[in-house]
Simulated scan of single mutants.
Amino acid sequence: MRLFTTVALFLTVTSCTTQAEYPEEVMYDIASILKDISQAVDGELKYEDTTGLTSEEVIKNATASIPDQLAKLPKLAVEGNVSRYRIISEFQGNNAVMLICDGDIALMEDVGCNTEFDNIYWHSPQPNTCTIKLDAAAICGN
């Protein structure tokens, strides 16, 4: 009986610790879309005249050829248990850095200048981390 109790307790504890708060498959889908958007915005900053445009206008122009991408993100956020979804962008010179958060918790961050996805935070979500951390000049080499 003691062995049964020990095994049951072990299974309960490990099932709780291995269950992710954010489902991997959905989060990777969100990351893929974020990568597409950050690259599009980065290209807009580098190759188009963005003088006098707001951040929202730059993003709108950049995603004009992929209009469904931005619309998919809030829907995927609901599916991924992201209750307070928000996307933050920062233009560092002619480079775009984009961050997706769940309220004040950073989930993922990407610089558009490279082909790799830069930072995944959803594996160990921490409060008060929803700020851009990446230095585009260091990553992009400019």
Rank of each mutant, 00 (worst) to 15 (best):
K75S: 12
G52D: 07
L76W: 01
V97G: 04
S83R: 07
A62K: 00
I33N: 04
A106Q: 03
S89Y: 15
I59F: 15
F91D: 07
I66A: 02
C101A: 05
T63R: 08
L34C: 02
G103F: 02
V78A: 11
L99E: 10
E90Q: 07
E48K: 09
I88K: 08
T63C: 12
V58P: 02
L34G: 08
E57F: 14
T51R: 15
L73S: 01
A64E: 13
L73N: 10
K46G: 08
L99I: 06
D42I: 09
D36E: 08
N81C: 15
L70N: 12
V41C: 02
K72W: 09
T54H: 08
Q39N: 12
G93V: 00
D68S: 12
A71C: 11
L99R: 01
L45S: 00
V82G: 03
R84T: 11
A96P: 01
E79T: 14
S32A: 12
A77K: 12
T51N: 03
A40Y: 08
A106G: 06
I100P: 14
E44C: 06
Y47P: 05
L34S: 15
I37E: 10
K72G: 13
T50D: 02
V58N: 07
D104Y: 09
D104S: 05
L99Y: 09
R84E: 13
Q92N: 13
I100S: 11
C101G: 07
A64S: 14
N81L: 05
G43T: 04
D104P: 03
V82F: 14
K72L: 14
A62W: 01
L34T: 14
A96H: 00
S89R: 02
A40D: 10
N81K: 07
G93E: 00
I33V: 11
S38C: 13
V97I: 06
T50R: 00
S55Q: 10
E57M: 11
I88G: 13
V78W: 12
A71Q: 15
G52P: 09
D68G: 04
E79Q: 10
G93R: 00
A106H: 05
P67I: 03
L76R: 05
M108T: 06
L53E: 01
Y47R: 12
R86D: 10
V58T: 04
A96S: 04
Y47D: 03
T54Y: 07
T51H: 02
A96N: 11
I105W: 04
S32H: 10
V41W: 03
I37G: 08
P74N: 13
D36V: 08
Q39D: 09
G80T: 04
D36K: 13
M108Q: 11
S89K: 10
A62V: 00
V78R: 15
G103Q: 07
A77F: 02
M108H: 01
